[in-house]
Design a protein around this nucleic acid. Structure first.
Lengths: 249, 249
DNA sequence: CCGAACCGTCCAAAATAGTCGAACAGCTTA
DNA sequence: TAAGCTGTTCGACTATTTTGGACGGTTCGG
């Protein structure tokens, strides 16, 4: 329980504004169990920062989040080198192609592009998931020092997302070993039921910089020849990205 | 000067973290002229919210901004109906195609897609610009009630961005009239020197919902036949979007 | 048509919480 | 080895957030 109450509350107000898709002081006050006047001060302050805009008494989150988010995304080196390759691969395969990185022990989707056959699975740029519940995250884990992997599991835990999620520490360790020797990871129904993912780790100078992956319906992933076709395409793209990353833009 | 000092400072810390691309308490303290210990508390608190992550004593902005930004973007109705049409038009024309909306009297780029001939001009999703300094903004202004236009100019002013920017209130009014009768807007070197923009307003039931535009080098915009070709393509896309918006997804 | 009930906003007193200097521990550098 | 840097912790002081109440507007139903 570290920190400043007012700042934490300000971000709580932001969460509520998101949840309610815009609200006035009264709604915020009811939702957060604080006086109306207090809610009003928070809203006014947030408006002065530009992260909230008001029209006729109702306050909404502004696009300052999108602005900052885009800039943070664009500043990322691995994004810069792979942002053109991802949509290309999406078009080639027709599936949803993603770029995932690790941040604070979690998997963050830095980019998401969809092809013709793509299904909407609620994957979007900025989405943060556990590392152990999908192929992309696991390829990253497979390339991190085992000391770091333990650290991450210690702080984040291994809570099941679906019935298929790995919850056993030892089984995860074994699977990471398999992924390390295979050079890619595959699984299905572990994060979202009905969704399968395939991924390869982006490794530059023995350091994981992220992972590129494909997400599609479970049935398509289960088809081995199709799966290997995707793996090969991921490997090709991966090589392009790795070289670009190493030897400049 | 409305609001809570601590919350405003928290967002100042965020700005500094952006500016310095990550920093420790000492750097923040120097930049903001506050004690090290104070900076430390802010960083810790921001970390607890998830919008900042720390690794080995240095704090960085997290991808929570990207996450929230994407969700805000996706929630927008006009984005939902036009997000597929924008990249299609980008591919067809080869230029940079943008979707712009008005928020709090400013132009916000909700989407930006680039084609083959596209030049990088520093346009990104979330970028906020004045409404009067480019074609997309002006098409929106041209469709707003004149009372609202005055209100916006009163609060935002008409500060010149380049030497070509319109700074005269009366001249702007005349130009908006022209845009209204033409149904589209064109200009160059007004926001960024060397960049020209063409745009059409998205009007549904007599209300502007946004604007779709094309940005390219000034020289290409000056070519009239090419310009009219782009205007026609914008109009086609606009019609598709308008119908979709009106009669559901 | 009017009044009751709701809204967002403002203000000034009361109490909590942000502020800040000093001290600690760890690291790198001279 | 010691000086100088870093991030971090602690506790007292004081400025700040908090809060209820009051104001003016709009909306609703009688």
């Amino acid at each position: 329980m570290s920190g400043m109450k007012s700042v934490q509350r300000a971000f709580d107000v932001i969460d509520v504004l998101w949840k309610l898709d815009g609200a006035g002081p009264t709604e915020i006050a009811n939702e957060m169990d604080i006086p109306r006047s207090t809610a009003h001060v928070y809203l006014q302050t947030l408006e002065s920062t530009g992260y909230v805009v008001s029209t006729a008494g109702t306050y909404k989150l502004s696009h300052a989040f999108l602005s900052m988010g885009s800039r943070i995304q664009q500043r990322n080196q691995i994004y810069q080198v792979s942002r053109r390759a991802i949509p290309d691969l999406a078009e080639e395969t027709g599936e949803v192609v993603t770029l995932v990185i690790e941040e604070a022990g979690e998997a963050v989707f830095l980019q998401r592009e969809s092809g013709e056959k793509a299904i909407e699975l609620g994957l979007y740029a900025g989405l943060t998931l556990p590392l152990y519940s999908h192929a992309a995250g696991k390829t990253i884990l497979s390339q991190l020092p085992s000391k770091r992997v333990d650290e991450i599991i210690d702080t984040r835990g291994l809570e099941p997302v679906t019935t298929e999620t790995i919850t056993d520490r030892e089984r995860l360790r074994e699977e990471l070993e398999t992924i390390r020797s295979d050079g890619y990871a595959v699984d299905w129904d572990q994060q979202i039921e009905g969704m399968g993912t395939i991924a390869v780790p982006i490794v530059v100078d023995d350091t994981v910089e992220g992972s590129i992956g494909i997400a599609c319906p479970t049935e398509r992933v289960k088809n081995e020849s199709y799966r290997m076709e995707l793996v090969n395409k991921l490997r090709e793209t991966n090589e392009t990205i790795t070289i670009k990353y190493r030897y400049g833009t």
